[in-house]
Design a protein around this nucleic acid. Sequence first.
DNA 1: GGCTGTAAAGTTTGATCAAAGATCAGAAGT
DNA 2: ACTTCTGATCTTTGATCAAACTTTACAGCC
Lengths: 275, 275
Amino acid sequence: MRRRPCDPPGHDGRRPLWDDDPTAMAELSSDPGEPTRRPQPGRRNALSMLAPVERHTVQQRVYLELRRSLIEGQFAAGEVMRIQDVASRLGTSTMPVREALGRLVSEQALEPLPNRSIRVPLLTRERLDDLAAARRLIEGEAVRLAVRRLTADDIAKLRRITRGYDELTAGEEDHGHRAIYNHAFHFGIYRAAGSKVLLPIIESLWLQTGPFIRASASLYDGADGLSATHHHWRIIAALEERDGEAAAAALGEDVERAFELLRDRLAHDEAETPT
Amino acid sequence: MRRRPCDPPGHDGRRPLWDDDPTAMAELSSDPGEPTRRPQPGRRNALSMLAPVERHTVQQRVYLELRRSLIEGQFAAGEVMRIQDVASRLGTSTMPVREALGRLVSEQALEPLPNRSIRVPLLTRERLDDLAAARRLIEGEAVRLAVRRLTADDIAKLRRITRGYDELTAGEEDHGHRAIYNHAFHFGIYRAAGSKVLLPIIESLWLQTGPFIRASASLYDGADGLSATHHHWRIIAALEERDGEAAAAALGEDVERAFELLRDRLAHDEAETPT
DNA sequence: GGCTGTAAAGTTTGATCAAAGATCAGAAGT
DNA sequence: ACTTCTGATCTTTGATCAAACTTTACAGCC
């Protein structure tokens, strides 16, 4: 009943979101879909300074777009993703969409139903606790690894990002932008950990928590008298002293705080709709 | 030079490996491709004892077959996977294969090259250390979680599996079967941890170490005077005493031992071929 | 009136096909 | 003899199409 069978794809009022949309997220994130390595800045060779040619496949763009939307919390939990809907909304055929959806399913970002349809997973209390524990465990380890490898330059970058977040918080109420800054801060650290194994795992965990990041961000401010970036500044301080345990502890509290608020909200929702 | 362009698919001498091949792995593993939940044995209701109807999609079977082959170490590191080759070898068209390969890529089990071809990742020393650390961290946590939830029945099952492994070791030299028993033992524990978040992560880690499990198993026996299941028995003992730390430590040593041997082998190989 | 069986619409899955890109071999030029 | 260009072959990617499967709606029956 919500389908329009003969829609000319890509012309239903929404622009294909990726064309010329180099968001901060895209720049600051780790580009998980592109396995080509960037040249190390340590080398002096002019050739090694060349970035690999950007390869645009449609599937890549669909995947990145869906991924970004998920992390920013654009999709509601439990929402069913229909291939043709997504395809026409993004202005492509179904083929790239179905591959991107399959990819997100195997990253646990989406959930296949026995009906063969695909939906954004519901976040139950159990799953929430599971995710919180996993994130504390794995991201904590990533911070410990990063402590030894972060350069002064990296830390300065983290400061800039956090300052940007603070200014954003003082001003408007754009949750999407907050999510982007939060993402940039955390992954700036995780990427410095230098683990090609842990990083994709953490990305998957963020995708799984994604549908609720927005809810978290909107609840975060001042809920306990602490500013949104309180824990971020503590993490930076610990990183500067090369104190891995303190940094991991502060990060654990940062994660825990976000999930604590989500837990409350979830308990509230479940009490309201005891389906 | 190894391609035969007009091969009738599925009739090149190899049987499609999945038809009526209920291996121990298939039975003992967690069926990650099938999200339907089995009925809890705790309920007395007759309806809840019904297993969900098996749903066979071709992609599912291709995926499971490739996955099994990878974990058992049937593919050499660096081997390029061509869609049409795999399709004709498995007796299907290219479509299910390309979706299965895409799925394995996003689980980090396979690696996309800039050429857009897909290969089994090379295992470098760096990657090996990365994987070892990640496995100790995450599987250790899974064991700690499992300690509180394992029933006496579960532990008895672990004993049976380990005894089966011992008997296998005494007898023939079938690495595939050893890998299956080893897999069954570990995942018997991890599944009991009850974390729907950690389990897929561990599966992905095993897929990444897969190409070398065979090498590990062949090197394992008697390399240091310990039997192959020495650590497994220690883990079982710790589980019976509900000592999570001891169990995690023993598991850490089990993982570490396998990787130690791989490290030696890798150092040897790299010394031989310093490409 | 409510339940059951059947038909129709819509969706996913798998196959085939065309086009773009990559690899490799051979020819031409220095 | 070595490098570079070009063409042919092979591969992946994206589109279209047919078939299997779900779901929903509707009519018939108890």
